[in-house]
Design a protein around this nucleic acid. Sequence first.
DNA 1: AAATCAAATTGTATCAAATACAATATATAA
DNA 2: TTATATATTGTATTTGATACAATTTGATTT
Lengths: 238, 238
Amino acid sequence: MDNSLAKIHLSVDCTVLGFNGNRLEVLLIRRTGEEGGKEFHDMKLPGSLILDQEELDDAARRVLTELTGLKNIPLQQFRAFGSMSRTKDPKDVHWLERAQQAHVTRIVTVAYVALVKIGRTITRDLEGSEALWVPVDALPQLAFDHNEIIAAALDHLRNGAVTDPSVLYALLPRKFTVTQLRTLYEVVFGVKLDAANFYKKMTQMPYVVALEEREKGVAHRAARYFRFDKNAYNKTRL
Amino acid sequence: MDNSLAKIHLSVDCTVLGFNGNRLEVLLIRRTGEEGGKEFHDMKLPGSLILDQEELDDAARRVLTELTGLKNIPLQQFRAFGSMSRTKDPKDVHWLERAQQAHVTRIVTVAYVALVKIGRTITRDLEGSEALWVPVDALPQLAFDHNEIIAAALDHLRNGAVTDPSVLYALLPRKFTVTQLRTLYEVVFGVKLDAANFYKKMTQMPYVVALEEREKGVAHRAARYFRFDKNAYNKTRL
DNA sequence: AAATCAAATTGTATCAAATACAATATATAA
DNA sequence: TTATATATTGTATTTGATACAATTTGATTT
């Protein structure tokens, strides 16, 4: 009975993105596996199989908390990845079966993105542990189809930011300079923007509010800090 | 072993959207079920369980072809739906188990959207069959979480159309008037647009090309037909 | 056949936003 | 004290958005 259906395993994977002031980075987990008797090291997205009765969103939240120690980070599911060829690399299959203690032929994963402030994420749990930030434009070959998942997550971010630019402020520190904001726009949309015009445009937005505090220790005129005002932003949309 | 993992079934569901010249419609399937001895009728999205070894995208394509007879329609996966509460309605569980001949506690579905030209879709297979177009702003209560899936599909369409408006032309007939195009924009984005300004703006786009042919049989000045030029469009983006 | 209707299409004027780029200000470093 | 590197402000120009009046043209009505 029921044997026309695959024995499918289901997992979640989280693409945690951060902005280091210069480019986008993704949080990856070191993986140690074995291939033909030899040990190897590579990286993968933080993920986990879904537990019995566990909601997808809860599973994603669980993974994120276990990894970063952070809670209440908005996570957004954006796509499932379920190609048969996800498990075409024997390295991955071998690793999976050792980790799961079960025969795995097919694993469908539900992918999430989270946008975090890099500074606040690197808690003691992360230091020297198995997690690390890697620039998204310099990724090595990752486990499974994780390179593809990250590419899709970036695409999702870009699309989301067009409709609702407020998501970008989740990537900036609470206090940020206009230059940081501009660099973020440049890196997300892959464009070059005029600094002077961008400055005027953004600082006249009611939701980008100036603080008294200024940058310190830079070898030039210190930039003013701004913060994002969620309330003011929401008022700009109906 | 392996009993900490749920026995999960996996399916695909297709949200096939069309534009009837006035509003968006979605293609639904009539469903006949049984509840407490009484037969009932309602509607659901076209979907199917994934076959063994079948790619997700292939499953979606298969469903779409079986339903509409059309092939080569671009389908886009946009999200998985896997909440435990998807099967909270006993009606749905009962229906599933009768259809699947198996005990089903949890079914995760991978959702796709397809945009089609309504006129070309209604083939003989559809006439009098179990499929029908229903306006998305007048949907009854559907099976499972299909109302939610359709809402997400519309959201996905809106977001996609902001970044890449060319997707909208998949919803229009090959020859269309500017008024049809404008109504589509209005209905997708939920806004009212000035007819004169929209006309000038669109007809000056290099990818909206005027044809000689005009509308016939309308009780006023006949509108000119235009067509969408994919090549010209692509040249406008890098 | 002429007048009428309704929507298509064209015109024009105004206002707002995008862009270019010069000029000024101000932390630290030399 | 001057030099350097950005931050920030100014100004002029171009382009696009918006409002709305005017004209055109099939079909229908008189």
